[in-house]
């Protein structure tokens, strides 16, 4: 009897518990549904570009149901648009904690790490994102960027190709793939991709500069000059193109034109040390050794670790007969890792 009573009591309590659990579950379902509805409102705001309203909706959805993974993801995106990296990172972390199969959360976290120049870890997260089903063209594109920065050009090639396969007019991906091919010495392939990039987006001026770089490698200096000029026409402040065109002129022994271009670089960007180095080298060719020395002085002032400038300045000083000082510069160049300086030092002994 006692046993029976206990059983009855247990059954009674269970039924109460079950009833309560059932009620809690029902309540939870109600909350989830409500949160989803608000989330969807946020999505609609986001689609219309109403960021503040969207953000508020995502906040509200999370307020109702804090374990809802998707609003963290969407909120993280909005925070990224406002450059709030730390907050966005927190949201990504939370989303992953709630659902480690949420590829987009890994993608966003990877993107934040990219912005923080943490390339290796960004690469890892992009891979996770893709493996977990976030196979958007951007995921492949950014992973390709990481491959490139980490000098894994074969992987970069694959990723940029994937990005293009998923989005045929992804102009940036064409340019990056072109540069990858360039690093792999496939210059003709690179040129083809640069042309494609420009066909889809003629504002990617860097593609002209890159194309020119490839043409130099293939010996087409005239073609390279034309491309550099095109880049400059499209962006008159593109000092890199001026610098590179100057280099091309230098290689063609057209030192006057090289001088003009390097001077232009400095007009645009006064603190671009390489231009001073190149200017100095050109002046050496034009036998203006004093002028060259001054240019190398500036290059070194701008970048005290500029080994090439030390080496070249030593050369200018040698022409000026300032031999002990030239030796000092070559010694410094050697310390900064310029291997050729070592053999110059033998003249100082």
């Amino acid at each position: 009897m006692r046993h029976f009573k206990i059983t009855l009591l247990m059954l009674f309590l269970s039924s109460i518990a079950f009833s309560q659990t059932n009620e809690i579950e029902q309540e939870l379902l109600k909350l989830k549904k409500q949160a989803k509805l608000i989330y969807n409102e946020g999505v609609r705001f986001a689609e219309k570009g109403q960021i503040t309203e969207a953000h508020q909706k995502f906040d509200a959805a999370l307020f109702i149901y804090s374990d809802f993974d998707l609003p963290y993801v969407e909120r993280a995106k909005l925070l990224l648009l406002s450059n709030e990296l730390d907050l966005a990172m927190n949201d990504c972390a939370k989303a992953i904690e709630l659902n480690d199969m949420l590829g987009e959360a890994f993608y966003l976290r990877a993107y934040i790490k990219l912005l923080q120049n943490d390339y290796q870890n960004a690469l890892t997260d992009f891979t996770h994102a893709i493996q977990k089903g976030f196979a958007e063209p951007q995921a492949y594109y950014y992973r390709g960027l990481m491959d490139f920065e980490l000098k894994d050009y074969n992987s970069a090639l694959i990723d940029f190709t994937m990005a293009i396969d998923k989005d045929y007019d992804f102009a940036y991906a064409y340019n990056e793939r072109g540069s990858t091919k360039r690093m792999l010495s496939d210059y003709h392939g690179a040129i083809h991709d640069y042309k494609q990039a420009l066909a889809y987006d003629s504002t990617i001026v860097i593609a002209y500069d890159n194309m020119a770089g490839c043409k130099i490698k293939t010996g087409d200096f005239e073609g390279a000059l034309a491309d550099y000029t095109k880049a400059i026409e499209k962006d008159s402040e593109f000092y890199i193109a001026y610098n590179n065109r100057g280099n091309a002129y230098y290689e063609m022994s057209n030192f006057e034109m090289a001088l003009n271009d390097f001077t232009k670089v400095i007009e645009i960007k006064k603190d671009f040390a390489p231009a001073y180095n190149n200017l100095g080298i050109t002046k050496i060719q034009l036998q203006n050794y004093l002028g060259a020395e001054k240019d190398f002085d500036i290059a070194i002032e701008l970048n005290p670790e500029y080994g090439e400038a030390y080496m070249n300045r030593g050369y200018a000083k040698e022409f000026l007969g300032k031999f002990p000082s030239a030796c000092a510069d070559w010694r410094k160049a050697q310390e900064l890792g310029i291997e050729e300086a070592e053999k110059y030092m033998t003249e100082c002994e």
Partner: peptide, 30 residues
């Protein structure tokens, strides 16, 4: 002695002119 020109190529369009919202993928309703 060989004079060393310096190039400072950018190569990547991303480094030349990053597109701030390129990462953004449109959300979907649940």
């Amino acid at each position: 002695k060989e004079l060393k020109l310096t190039t400072d190529d950018i190569y990547l369009a991303w480094n030349y002119k990053p597109v701030e919202d390129l990462f953004y993928v449109n959300p979907k309703e649940v």
